[in-house]
Amino acid sequence: MIKYLAKRMGRSLITLFFIMTLVFILLRLMPIEGYFDNFDKLTEEQIQVGLEGMGLTDPMPVQLVHFFEDLLHGDLGVSRRYRSNVAVTEILASKIPISVQLGSMSILLSLLCGLPMGILMTKNKGKMFDKIGTLFIVFIQAVPAMVYFLFIQLYGTTLLNVPLLFDASNPICWILPVFSMSLGNTAYYGMWLRRYMVDESTKDYVKLAKAKGVSEGQIMVKHIFKNAFVPLIQYLPTSFLNTVIGSIYIESLYSVPGMGGLLVDVIKKNDNNMVQAIVLLYAIVGVIGLLLGDILMTAVDPRISLSKKGGGR
């Protein structure tokens, strides 16, 4: 297991290296405006001096080496246009915590609602609850999120008397964003859990469990739920991390000062260093999510062994 993890980490680092190299090189092709906050007012010489100062006139491989050297020291460069001359890490550090909080709460809420929903739908398959649940899922999946997000904001803010400006210390400000954000995942977990549970409930081992006298409720809890959760669990870390990274809609709707939409902002503003840093963050999140998913799978399914070749199934 440890050997596997080491290997996997190594491979993840190589993946990240390639992503970053590619992004770095592509960003060098961008207009040089992105490195100055007052480009229009500068003279040709000033620009040249500035570029040299930032090492941007060096040959590409040299720049790349510098970039990775800085990266290893935890230095992601300085924002130029998003916020002039503020370290990228500092900007991110101020934004990440609030997004993490928002994301964690919403994921927790979707698990608390989605999983029971899936179980109850399976139990009442074909009956009223199942139909209502399916309606909810179809609605969430089919209607663009923006539509119901807006409705929730429109009616929710007046109903709960939410102040216009987001205030992290005021719990009432959290309710609507967390709720809105959890809807998509709730539907997702409910839908897939129901589907996998229905699949499982027709399997032979369920029949054997019935034949030995296990009650249907117990079979649901002890056999079907756990087995149906295996395929879902792999996706869990990725969905968690993606939610944490932020939702563009929600954060802009409620003016939450988080990560959501940051990437779009900095691309619009040509802030190359910020783009670089955020892409790196996304890549890391993606890689870690997949890794965690696989590790979780091995934890719940004994047939899946990461260390043995040809083992398992």
Binding site: K207, A211, K212, H223, N227
Partner: peptide, 16 residues
């Protein structure tokens, strides 16, 4: 009344 079924490969819960 207990029962033994045809498919030993699938009649046990793989996760227990």
């Amino acid at each position: 009344i207990a029962m033994i079924m045809q498919e030993p490969m699938t009649s046990l819960n793989p996760l227990k």
